[in-house]
């Protein structure tokens, strides 16, 4: 009268198949949540940077220069005291001279401080956080840290309102020159009053991640201290190409871009953070990059 019987093979297989399907559904969902968390962290970093730049403006009456020619330093150095890194800022030599001078390329007291990783300068979705460029590596072999956030130096191309070209300081060595109509560019001294288009309508800081040759995402390869090296601008980028465009061989025109699906995040001039889609009308992207172009349409 014993009616107990075991599971048949078919039943077992069905159960295993169902479990497999459930796991298959779950794993991509976990990856998606991880990416969403990384994106939120990145958004927060940009918010902190935006607030830091505003605090700098409150104290100094203007935004820091995006990239200073005289001492080669980027805006990130000047914003340090306002992102809780005052003690590191005090170590910096703000005097004239290359950012990687000296026999060990330490600056001195400039590039050597990029050996410190400032977590607010890195997007957690970007796998490479160390600068890969040879000039950003100390002679003794120690590697510096890079930053995924770059100032918006301004647009290059044609202003749709006036039909004239956006102002660009051209240089002859093929790095693409310096766009002049953005908030953070070469030797800029932007004040709130000079952002005529409105601070909420102007891009200030954005993400830069490029798939270099090996298809690995990283920033522009420079350390976070570097602003200007000869005619190559590292702390800021011209807006010449659409978001997520691969490297065209023109260093100052490296496009803004990110590993987040479909676009990149930007801190606007008013400190808010927006996600701008990669497929946005290029004219609109450039209009948003300029602070005094008089354009109406703004990317959001």
């Amino acid at each position: 009268m014993n009616v107990r019987r075991g599971f048949t093979l078919i039943e077992l297989l069905v159960v295993i198949a169902i479990i497999a399907i459930l796991i298959g559904l779950l794993l991509p969902a976990v990856q998606k949540v991880r990416e969403a968390a990384a994106r939120a962290k990145c958004q927060n970093n940009l918010k902190q940077i935006g607030i830091g730049l505003h605090a700098y403006h409150d104290a100094n009456g203007r935004f820091p220069a995006g990239a200073t020619v005289a001492n080669g330093l980027s805006w990130r150095v000047y914003v340090l005291p306002y992102v809780e890194q005052d003690s590191l800022y005090k170590l910096f030599d703000l005097g004239a001279g290359a950012w990687n001078g000296g026999t060990n390329r330490e600056g001195p007291n400039k590039m050597v401080h990029a050996l410190n990783r400032i977590s607010v300068f890195n997007c957690p979705s970007v796998p490479v956080i160390q600068a890969s460029n040879g000039s950003s590596t100390l002679v003794d072999g120690r590697k510096t840290f890079t930053s995924d956030y770059h100032g918006v130096a301004g647009p290059k191309g044609t202003n749709p309102v006036t039909g004239a070209a956006y102002a660009v300081d051209a240089n002859p060595t093929g790095n693409g020159g310096f766009a002049l109509q953005g908030i953070l560019g070469k030797d800029t001294k932007t004040r709130f009053a000079s952002t005529i288009d409105g601070t909420s309508n102007t891009l200030m800081v954005g993400e830069v991640s490029v798939k270099w040759n090996s298809n690995i995402l990283e920033s522009d390869g420079a350390d976070w201290v570097r602003g200007m090296s000869g005619n190559g601008m590292a702390g800021c980028r011209n807006v010449q190409n659409a978001i997520n465009t691969p490297y065209t061989g023109v260093y100052n025109d490296i496009s803004f871009g990110s590993p987040h699906n479909g676009g990149a995040q930007f801190a606007m001039g008013d400190g808010s953070v927006r996600f701008v889609q990669a497929t946005v009308d290029l004219v609109v992207l450039k209009a948003t990059a300029s602070m005094d172009g008089g354009e109406i349409q703004i990317a959001n």
Binding site: T158, P160, G163, N241, A242, T245, D281, L282
Partner: peptide, 10 residues
């Protein structure tokens, strides 16, 4: 080319 009135993605 926005100078010739064309708009869109790159």
């Amino acid at each position: 080319d926005p100078a010739k009135g064309n708009r869109g993605q790159q």
